[in-house]
Amino acid sequence: MTTNKTFLGVPVARPKVAFFELSSCEGCQLQLLNNEATLLDFLSLVEVVRFREGMKEASDDYEIAFVEGSITRRDEEERLRVIREQAKVVVALGSCACFGGVNQLKNRFNDLEWVKKEVYGSFPIETQKVKPLSAVIKVDLEIYGCPIKKEEVERIVTALVLGEQIHHPQYPVCMECKARENICLFDLGEPCLGPVTRAGCDAWCPSNRLGCWGCRGPAPEANLSQLQIIMAERGISQERMIDRLECFGGFAAFVAEVKEKKGEPK
């Protein structure tokens, strides 16, 4: 069903949207179901034709595909290609889809067979190196976060439906953290990736006294060399810093660079 809405005289269609999950916890989709107060408005904006977390029916007639999760198996690549064929717009939903997310932590081990054995024992399972969606298909839009922030998704989807350009903040989390008048985590002796991580989460973690783990990936022009100095000055080891930077995969290129300098395998 498509109603004929207009905004400033411009016809606005109610697009059919579908939600898909690859390797993930489906927590990002659950985020969308949180806060029932705005759920009806969200549903008036788009027509959801597939959403495993919230409905039984599943249609393959959709225009916008929200794909959560990263790719860890060959069949997921195939599934994703089919989605790309069908959808006009493919949205990578959450850090797993954008960067590989927590799943890609296993990529840091050279021997993936050993990883498989440690985790699954003798259980037969296919698992490969973790990839973000963009490694397999063209992604039109990325929505960052682990999990995503519902308010941000609502803003982005409204803009998408209106046919507006989508802009992500160009500044790091510190900007939003200061606006919430938090105590700087570094003053408490905690490491924090706020100075280099793309904002948009409204400093969710630092506002709860948890240092940023960089789930939204690097801000454009993130000053990572200065971050290393900041960490070192405060006696935070490079291992600890790398642990954080590696957690969601957004800083993969920089981590590889640091490891190479240290002479470690990537």
Partner: peptide, 9 residues
């Protein structure tokens, strides 16, 4: 963004 929307009105 604004001028592209304007283009449609």
């Amino acid at each position: 963004n604004m001028t592209m929307f304007l283009d449609r009105v």
